[in-house]
């Protein structure tokens, strides 16, 4: 007897957000990338459409980062120059996009000037053709000057800029509106604040399809189950027609995975845990794939091997199942 597959029918879908702009569109990217558009729970191809693949953006910083030796080995030849670093990620490691974290602008780090940061951004745009995602240093006062300057210097590129938060969203939202960029709206693993922030931003007239949700995920073992439930609930809301929960999701996978104890502790310390190198890479890859399964669209990652594993997983997940 044939098994009758019970299918959910959804009235709505995740919004599509387009990243980047080509020369014809007023930017300088070699191509654009669209994320979102899913009309079913993650990869339930038999219940809906998945017009766009999830993407992996590799992290680059405007300073030599304080990363551990496993990451250092991959990037130390280029990380003195953010443009070369970005180029390596795209050309050697197949990054779909570049995620520039302006950590060096942090007053407690290098306190890089706004002009310096703008120059870094421009040099990366010159070096690569893929769309660019840029986060500030996450110090309110600095970012409120830094991000508008970057938005203005890159007007027309249709970048993805972050982050807007409930207590500080107006400046960056206005900058994205005026200079036509997309915006990351971040909420602290809280679905109610997430929805409210999206409302506040759209009330300033930034269209909903220019917003990407950063739910401030935790890594495997560090609260990923909370992230999983929030992503799942947001997706169900989106599919039921809740427009303020319908934006694609971005996750800071690399940053969270590589700060865990498991990604850093030495073999001497925990002989039963296996090689440090393999452990960190697996930690990042498993964090990323778990989030894919719960509905993430943009993964911000660090280690090329983890990226490669996750991209293969995405290939498999994007194959329609045969129900």
């Amino acid at each position: 007897m044939a098994v009758n597959i019970i299918k959910d029918r959804n009235s709505s879908s995740v919004l599509e957000v387009k990243l980047g702009a080509t020369k014809e569109e007023g930017g300088s990217r070699s191509h654009t990338i669209t994320v979102g558009g899913d009309s079913a729970l993650p990869f339930n191809h038999f219940e809906g459409e998945f017009p766009n693949r999830p993407i992996v953006a590799m992290e680059v910083q405007d300073m030599v980062p304080k990363w551990n030796d496993i990451l250092k080995k991959e990037f130390e030849d280029v990380w003195g120059d953010p443009a070369e670093w970005a180029q390596k990620c795209v050309e050697e490691y197949g990054a779909d996009a570049i995620y520039l974290k302006l950590e060096g602008a942090h007053p407690d780090e290098k306190d890089n000037s706004i002009d310096h940061c703008v120059d870094v951004v421009k040099s990366i745009l010159d070096a690569i053709g893929v769309p660019l995602i840029i986060y500030g240093c996450e110090v309110e006062e600095k970012d409120n000057e830094l991000m508008p300057a970057i938005a203005e210097a890159t007007a027309g590129e249709n970048l993805l800029l972050g982050v807007a938060e409930q207590e500080n969203y107006k400046t960056i939202t206005a900058a994205c509106m005026v200079h036509k960029h997309n915006l990351v709206a971040r909420s602290p693993l809280d679905i109610n604040i997430c929805k409210q922030l999206n409302i506040l931003i759209t009330e300033m007239n930034l269209p909903a399809n220019k917003i990407v949700i950063d739910p401030a995920i935790g890594a495997l073992g560090y609260g990923i189950e909370y992230a999983y439930s929030i992503l799942e609930r947001a997706r169900i809301g989106a599919l039921q027609g809740d427009k303020m929960m319908s934006m694609p999701i971005i996750c800071t996978v690399g940053e969270e995975a590589w700060k865990t104890k498991e990604a850093n502790a030495s073999v001497d310390e925990y002989p039963g845990w296996g090689e440090t190198a393999t452990r960190g890479i697996l930690w990042e890859a498993v964090t990323a794939t778990s989030l894919l399964h719960s509905g993430a669209h943009i993964l911000l990652m660090r280690h090329p091997k983890a990226v490669s594993v996750v991209k293969k997983e995405i290939d498999k997940l994007m194959k329609p199942n045969s129900f």
Binding site: I191, N192, I193, K195, I199, D242, M244, M245
Partner: peptide, 11 residues
Amino acid sequence: QNIYCDSYVKL
């Protein structure tokens, strides 16, 4: 039936 947010009435 709906995800709470402060502006739920307006929404």
